[in-house]
């Protein structure tokens, strides 16, 4: 684990979970039980998701501010005054939050990068492309032969990753047209094993192994 952020610990305890950055009410919809709530500052509209959070991290605030009081009530760790937390932490980062020390550690993960051809953030399991097979939203499909005819079978996949292809190739444009998050020229992706859990953020051109 790597220490990346420090702030003021205002509620004791330790928690581990995936970062969920909340900036608008729209972000509340995807908030899952056990996520680490990262935001500028909490307010009463967030009470519901605060109840699901494993820990809370805020960019501003002090000992008596809203997140501090609520987290102590809920018995979950909370750190406030963490400068630029919403910028430095990324959606889906696996982090450890230590309320006593006011420290946030990020799990060292394998990270792959490539070129985005259709934006989207998807969590799922790695699946290798097989001709004739159908795929579901939770499947992140690795395809070696990145050609258009193969893409038509991937309409329902969560995301497409390829070690080949460029942003202007036909298949990339088809993926964009079908609105399937897609990254091409991803080096080393072929080494990922079937079933590996990953978080893909194509717009940021990052694939993280959970």
């Amino acid at each position: 684990m790597k220490l990346i952020l420090k702030g003021l610990g205002v509620s004791k305890g330790k928690a581990k979970g995936n970062v969920k950055i909340v900036e608008t009410m729209e972000d509340h919809k995807d908030f899952k039980q056990g996520d680490i709530l990262v935001t500028r500052i909490t307010d009463p509209t967030m009470t519901k998701i605060m109840g699901k959070a494993a820990a809370i991290v805020c960019e501003i605030g002090g000992l008596t501010s809203h997140p501090s009081i609520i987290s102590r009530e809920l018995g979950i760790p909370c750190i406030v005054s963490v400068k630029d937390a919403t910028k430095i932490l990324k959606q889906g980062d696996l982090v450890h939050v230590c309320g006593e020390k006011g420290e946030i550690h990020v799990a060292e993960t394998s990270i792959f990068t490539g070129q985005c051809t259709c934006p989207g953030i998807v969590e799922g399991k790695i699946r290798r492309y097989q001709k004739g097979k159908t795929y579901k939203k939770e499947d992140i499909v690795i395809i070696n032969e990145f050609v258009t005819q193969n893409l038509l079978l991937l309409r329902d996949a969560g995301a497409i990753l390829s070690s080949t292809g460029g942003i202007t190739c036909h298949a990339a444009i088809i993926a964009r047209e079908l609105n399937i998050p897609c990254m091409v020229s991803v080096k080393g992706i072929e080494n990922l094993e079937e079933g590996t859990e990953v978080i893909v953020d194509t717009a940021s051109e990052v694939i993280k192994v959970k």
Binding site: C116, T117, C118, R176, E177, A203, E205
Partner: peptide, 15 residues
């Protein structure tokens, strides 16, 4: 930033 640049670029990768 990268995410914003890619999101904007992808708006036009369509025909």
């Amino acid at each position: 930033d990268k995410a914003e640049a890619n999101t904007y670029l992808c708006e036009f990768l369509t025909a």
